[in-house]
Write a protein that binds this DNA or RNA. Structure first.
Length: 466
RNA sequence: GGCGACGUGGCCAAGUGGCAAGGCAAGGGUCUGCAAAACCCUGAUCGCCGGUUCGAAUCCGGCCGUCGCCUCCA
């Protein structure tokens, strides 16, 4: 099976072929670091983490670049409001986001460049565009000449005329066309600035990504990703700049994830309906957010609500429950054969789903099917060793999706375990003596302390409550 | 106003021409002293109306509804 990927540029699913065999160059737009990151940012990072993990599972070497936009109007404004140094402010949020990515089990991108570290390349690129008359200057500003770019609008399928008739295009002094966008902005009083051929100033919003992709991945890349709210104008403008500069097609596949919806609306700062990553992680595990995302297709909007979170927690408990050891002794026979057949079939079903434009919901269904078979086998008394073979497949495939499937490490768990063992053992004696009331009280009170006790045919087992 | 996406059982959500995945919830059953977990079973004429087709959730047209982009946005 070959991987097929939906390409926003062509609005179709296409077979995935890389520019260089075995290597994937992937650029994903990271956040503008002026405020705390919310779960929408996490979603984007997780979606492309899954893409990366699956590509690596398929044997590709992935060069994954995710940028930080640390030079920007909003950062400067925020810094002016708080009196903080804009670089210090940006740096703080960068470190915070990196920590959150690690907590979310997102593999560290190969490179995480910043605008402030890419200034030389940005300036060179603007100069190149100016030389080729794709750019022009007005005072200390430099604009991209949209009319000069014949296929401008091909990603968002927008015609220049449509935008012109709209009322929202801001009219700025000196622009030849309202659709022209800034490549370089002249310094205003109190703003940080870099020296350039056009005087002190800073880059416009879109040029950074073009420059960082060029610097770290080359003139042409395989995958360019981001949220679908970036299609226009950000990615449209990136294409315009990069392709006008190099004369070559920029990205082979444009991938865009859908937006997280909170009470039916897109989660965003302007609407104020957001949940920060730290707020989420304070109450739920990282696997919960990831499993929510995996449950639907990455291109579609995803419903985010307390009800969905709670459902997902229970679904996660089901996945984890399949990893319980069991105490059977059956080493062969129909139950074992059935389990082995399921374990063998699972990877193929999983890959078929993932090969179809990363259909994680269908891939998860393959995992749940395996879960059912493992549980069946356990009920049928299959030995821990035979069970373990199938469980290893489950753990491996879940790992490709970035799910850890590890129960949270209970704080004082290690020290408390012998005491819980003792209580459970004593309770077993009570049960043997049919002292039901006392036995039930022990179980109830342990549950209140976060310990789940379950009685099986082979004896009582316990685990920390999730 | 322009561009685009979506509407599948109580909820979340796959499926884009051939008997409608999966998860959660609900009901019934097995097991159990009880419980929990697990397993088995039960349930959808796929927004509405037309059309194409031997056959449509899936293609085409219309309508209704929801959402996104067009300004910063993952």
């Amino acid at each position: 099976m070959t991987l097929r990927v939906y390409n926003t540029l062509t609005r179709r699913e296409e077979p995935f072929e890389t520019l260089e065999p075995g290597v994937v160059r992937m650029y994903v737009c990271g956040p503008t670091v002026y405020d705390r990151a919310h779960v929408g940012h996490a979603m984007s990072a997780i979606v492309f983490d899954i893409v990366r993990r699956y590509l690596e599972y398929k044997g590709y070497q992935v060069r994954h670049v995710m940028n930080f936009t640390d030079v920007d109007d909003k950062i400067i404004r925020r810094a002016q409001e708080t009196g903080e140094d804009p670089f210090a402010l940006a740096n703080r949020y960068i470190e915070e986001f990196k920590r959150q990515l690690a907590q979310l089990n997102v593999l560290t991108p190969t490179v995480m460049p910043r605008v402030s570290e890419t200034m030389r390349e940005i300036i060179a690129m603007v100069q190149g565009l100016e030389r080729a008359s794709f750019a022009y200057r007005t005072d200390g500003d430099v604009y991209f000449r949209v009319r000069k770019d014949a296929d401008y609008g091909k990603l968002s399928r927008r015609k220049l005329e449509d935008a012109v008739s709209g009322t929202r295009v801001e009219v700025e002094e000196g622009k030849e066309d309202p659709n022209d966008f800034a490549l370089w902005k002249a310094q205003k009083p109190g703003e940080p600035a870099w020296d350039s051929p056009w005087g002190p100033g800073r880059p416009g919003w879109h040029i950074e990504c073009s420059a960082m992709a060029l610097k770290h991945l080359g003139e042409q890349i395989d995958i360019h990703g981001g949220g679908n709210d970036l299609i226009f104008p950000h990615h449209e403008n990136e294409i315009a700049q990069s392709e006008s500069y190099t004369g070559k097609p920029f990205a082979r596949y444009w991938m865009h994830n859908g937006m997280l919806q909170l009470s039916g609306e897109k989660m965003s700062k302007s609407l104020g309906n957001l949940v920060t990553i730290d707020e989420f992680l304070a109450e739920h595990e990282a696997d919960v957010l990831r499993l929510m995302i995996l449950g639907s297709h990455y291109r579609k909007p995803l419903a985010f609500s307390d009800a969905v979170i709670e459902d997902t927690k229970r679904a996660l408990a089901r996945l984890r429950g399949a990893l319980r050891p069991g105490r059977g002794t059956v080493e062969s026979g129909p139950a074992v054969e059935r389990l082995q057949a399921a374990a063998q079939a699972a990877p193929a079903a999983f890959e078929a789903a993932m090969d179809d434009d990363f259909n994680t919901a269908a891939a998860l269904a393959a995992l749940y099917d395996l879960v059912t078979e493992i549980n069946r086998a356990r009920d049928a008394g299959v030995s821990p060793a035979r069970l373990g073979e199938a469980q290893a497949v489950l753990v491996k495939l879940a790992g490709v999706l970035g799910l850890r499937l590890e129960a949270p490490a209970a704080g004082a768990g290690a020290e408390a375990a012998p005491f819980v063992d003792l209580l459970v053992e004593l309770r077993s004696k009570l049960r043997a003596a049919k002292q039901w009331a006392l036995a039930d009280e022990v179980r109830d009170r342990l549950l209140a302390l976060g310990v789940v006790v379950e009685d099986t045919r082979e004896g009582s087992v316990w685990r920390w409550k999730e």
